[in-house]
């Protein structure tokens, strides 16, 4: 099975280890992983800023890069959601492109969803020991139905105990450029999320989107919490060996 790994721009810039963790997991699941080197961004920032034309050009680029793969996997709910739920709409006036977009969309998955429902990963190499709580990222949850999948994967890790926090499905306040345009509202939402994370008593909050990770980690540290770890689902599944590579 030829799987295209869409690394996503934020993983590329901020947390390459998450990209490598995803790569390792997919390989462990027996996939032939290809990482097109010309990939950049799915176009979501342009799309949500109202720049439909800019978003469309990037969508075309991504479709061409990944069309040859059986599946596309992204370690991000919002990027996978962009391709799956929004690309067809970008080409609503162009049937040929619209069909290509829709065809790729149905083969595009958020990482934990792919590992659970497509390749049915039976064990995770991760060695994390402790209590974790899972934050449902908005796009993954409401655009792709990612809810049970990451929890099922965490349940395969013997050292991990999952506790649900209050308001796990509530937005952390990131929202792309919202976090900068309305920094104070965004930071206040992040604070509520971090309070819920801390009240859960978990050693780590686990999630599947970089933007939300940066927002939550940034707020936890500003609140003086140096202890609670913020981990991507791929990192915790792969374990210590891959971290920091």
């Amino acid at each position: 099975m030829r799987v295209g790994l869409f690394v996503t721009c934020l993983v590329d810039l901020m947390r390459p280890r998450i990209g490598f963790a995803a790569l390792r997991l997919l390989e462990a699941a027996g996939c032939e992983v290809v990482v097109p080197t010309s990939q950049t961004c799915c176009g979501q920032p342009a799309y949500n800023a109202g720049d439909r034309r800019g978003a469309r050009l990037l969508a075309e680029k991504l479709i061409v890069e990944f069309e040859g793969c059986d599946h596309v996997v992204a370690p991000s709910g919002s990027c996978a959601g962009m391709i799956r739920a929004h690309y067809p709409n970008l080409f609503s006036d162009d049937p040929a492109w619209c069909e290509r977009a829709a065809a790729l969309g149905t083969r595009t998955h958020e990482l934990s969803d792919f590992l659970t429902t497509v390749v049915k990963l039976d064990k995770a190499p991760g060695d994390f020991i402790g209590t974790v709580t899972y934050h449902d990222v908005c796009s993954g949850l409401r655009e792709l139905g990612v809810k049970a999948q990451p929890r099922a994967l965490l349940a395969k890790m013997p050292g991990v105990r999952l506790v649900e926090m209050e308001g796990a499905e509530e937005c952390c306040g990131f929202g792309g450029t919202f976090a900068v345009k309305f920094g104070d509202i965004s930071a206040r939402l992040a604070e509520k999320k971090c309070e819920n994370v801390r009240t859960s008593g978990a050693d780590a909050v686990v999630l599947g989107d970089l933007g939300c990770m940066l927002n939550i980690e940034g707020k936890l540290r500003r609140m003086g919490d140096e202890k609670t770890r913020v981990l991507h689902i791929a990192e915790i599944l792969v374990g210590g060996a891959e971290r920091g590579s």
Partner: peptide, 24 residues
């Protein structure tokens, strides 16, 4: 470049090299 981000929270530091550099 984004003072409204850091007014209310920290911005985590990138790892150091991009994925594409490391992958290469």
């Amino acid at each position: 470049v984004a003072p409204s981000w850091t007014a209310g929270r920290d911005f985590p530091t990138p790892e150091g090299r991009t994925f594409r550099e490391l992958y290469k």
